[in-house]
């Protein structure tokens, strides 16, 4: 039987709706305004409808080097993603047991998340300056991004392994699997879906990172830095066109991750248990 919903449900549902509108409204406006006609400006009303500003984006004279900074951010995001996933798995495996210094490492990782980003940026910039190395997105930038993505991956892995049923692993060991075989054929498939989550965090947090990148990426801008530069000197809807493109790219990555996640869950459900099936 279905219970009748209380009045508070409708109030709260309305608040939730307003919140979603608050989250998505502004970005929708950007998407719409990026299709301004050639004579349109940064605000409504729309002066016609065109893809003029998207073409303007690819003409080099109008804006900075958006294509190379995009490719740079893409590469950096992928590198950070792979490193975050691998290192988070390793750390998660280690943290299933207490070891000397585990508390220190735990709180250092958490600290990495809550230390103001400007400190990370400034500190790394200073080290490179003092040693005499040149800051670059592939070295200092990469390290700065990892200080931001690793804590997320780490905390997710800790949460995952806290819920992990060790009897699967023991069963594998009892049946004679080696350590590596146990990890490869038992542990990884079980935690697989969570790794998609870690990968998504690793990529998107790096792809959109600004605060820790500013002083660590050197002369070559990542995309968020390029966009920030545009806010001060571009006063046409090109800015919105770029915003639209990069947001859709983010959405594409998020949906891909969710699709893979959904597929893995399905597969796990269908292949998951053969108990009692006489396989």
């Amino acid at each position: 039987m279905r219970r009748k919903r209380p009045t508070s449900f409708y109030w709260l549902a309305a608040i939730y709706g307003v919140f979603v509108l608050f989250l998505y409204g502004p970005i929708s406006a950007i998407v719409i305004l990026s299709f301004q006609g050639p004579s349109g400006g940064l605000t409504f009303p729309m002066n016609g409808f065109s893809v003029h500003w998207f073409f303007a984006l690819f003409g080099k004279q109008l804006v900075g080097d958006f294509e190379t900074s995009f490719l740079r951010s893409l590469q950096l995001g992928l590198i950070v993603m792979v490193l975050t996933v691998v290192i988070s798995i390793l750390t998660g495996l280690a943290f299933r047991k207490k070891f000397f210094g585990s508390n220190l490492l735990f709180y250092t990782t958490v600290a990495s998340l809550i230390v103001p980003s400007i400190l990370v940026s400034l500190g790394i910039g200073l080290i490179f300056n003092i040693i005499g190395w040149e800051v670059s997105w592939t070295t200092s930038g990469l390290g700065a991004h990892l200080t931001w993505t690793l804590p997320f991956g780490f905390l997710i892995m800790i949460a995952v392994f806290n819920r992990f049923d060790k009897s699967y692993e023991e069963a594998a060991k009892d049946l004679g699997a080696s350590n590596w075989q146990t990890i490869r054929h038992v542990v990884l498939p079980i935690i697989g879906p969570s790794l998609i989550g870690v990968a998504l965090f690793g990529f998107t947090l790096s792809y959109d990172e600004f605060a820790r990148t500013l002083m660590t990426s050197g002369v070559k801008n990542t995309l968020p830095l390029e966009i920030f530069g545009m806010t001060t000197n571009v006063t046409t809807p090109t800015l919105y066109a770029l915003g639209t493109l990069t947001t859709f790219f983010s959405l594409f990555m998020i949906l891909t991750a969710m699709g893979v996640l959904f597929y893995l869950r399905r597969r796990q459900e269908s292949l998951g248990s053969d108990a009692g099936k006489g396989v």
Binding site: P26, A29, D208, F210, P224, F228, G243, S250, L251
Partner: peptide
Amino acid sequence: WTSNIIRMIS
């Protein structure tokens, strides 16, 4: 999971 800067500009 989308860009903070774009969300501000919006």
